[in-house]
């Protein structure tokens, strides 16, 4: 008969304890990843992230010649195509990228709770720790995909619209196009991890509510508030501890030689946020009553 048929337990016999199968964690991770990456809303967000560099590139191309001697990253774009990617990061860091991270992270637990699927996952059973770890892994992959999307879209747009030969670093030296691509990948990785740290905060907030939109909004508000605090000169003392200030450290890859220690400091800040937010999430979630 069918395998779905329940097994007959002889009375008095102890329960046969089912054992975990190899790669079970990987199987579930892939399943969760599929859920996030098949969800229309999440795909639309990636699409928008891909579109922004193209729009900026086209606008600059049209304006080419009219504006020439202005400062900022974009001023170099017309001469150094790949600079478009770094300009796109700078433009999208205040809101677009954090929003993408917040939507996926804020929804991670609260979305399951509001749908009621959380109770069924937990009785499957999935341990609460395993649930948090898997959800965070998926958030991190989405954040990395978001920055990779921006980098890829900007690179392609730049190649089509401008001449992508060697470019000038912020230090004034010239590096080759290939090395530039390597550095761009590094920046995307760095920012992806930085967004993952915000994602960890969103995950923690997501364990505290059954309304995903509340967790998403709270995450975005925190990120915007941190950026405002980081922009106030009188508050410079706290700036090194702000996640958002560490994000802007990505331009270290644009110096020659690369400011590796800046990147390292930023990564330490990211790691600290992930550890602390993870601990908060675990403390809140480990023995919470699931009444949704």
């Amino acid at each position: 008969m069918s395998t779905a048929e329940a097994r007959v337990a002889p009375p008095g016999a102890g329960a046969v304890v089912p054992v975990a199968r190899p790669f079970a964690a990987l199987r579930w991770f892939r399943s969760e990843l599929g859920l996030v990456f098949r969800r229309p809303r999440n795909l639309v967000m990636l699409g928008v992230l891909a579109l922004v560099p193209v729009v900026v590139g086209v606008a600059l191309r049209i304006a080419q010649g009219e504006v020439s001697a202005e400062g900022g990253a974009f001023a170099q774009v017309t001469g150094n195509g790949l600079m478009l990617a770094f300009g796109a990061f700078a433009v999208m860091l205040p809101l677009f990228l954090p929003l993408a991270a917040a939507v996926v992270a804020g929804d991670s637990i609260a979305g399951e709770a509001s749908r009621g699927t959380l109770r069924y996952l937990l009785v499957t059973p999935v341990s609460r720790t395993r649930l948090l770890v898997t959800k965070f892994a998926v958030i991190a992959v989405y954040c990395l995909a978001a920055t990779a999307t921006v980098a890829a879209s900007a690179s392609i747009a730049a190649t089509v619209l401008f001449s992508p030969d060697g470019m000038t670093t912020l230090s004034g030296t010239v590096i080759s196009g290939w090395e530039m691509i390597g550095r761009l990948a590094l920046a995307a990785l760095y920012l992806g991890l930085g967004l993952s740290a915000l994602g960890a905060v969103g995950l923690a907030l997501s364990t505290m509510t059954e309304a995903p939109i509340a967790a998403i909004a709270a995450t975005v508000v925190l990120s915007v508030a941190a950026q405002i605090l980081g922009a106030i000169p009188q508050l410079d003392v706290i700036s090194p501890y702000l996640l958002t200030s560490a994000w802007s450290g990505f331009d270290a890859v644009l110096r020659d030689p690369m400011a590796v220690s800046d990147l390292r400091d930023g990564l330490l800040v990211f790691a600290a946020y992930i550890v602390i937010a993870g601990a908060v999430a675990w403390a809140r979630f480990a023995d919470r009553d699931i009444t949704s």
Partner: peptide
């Protein structure tokens, strides 16, 4: 999806 979450499946 629920089946994938079950490590014993």
């Amino acid at each position: 999806r629920y089946d994938a979450a079950d490590r014993t499946a």
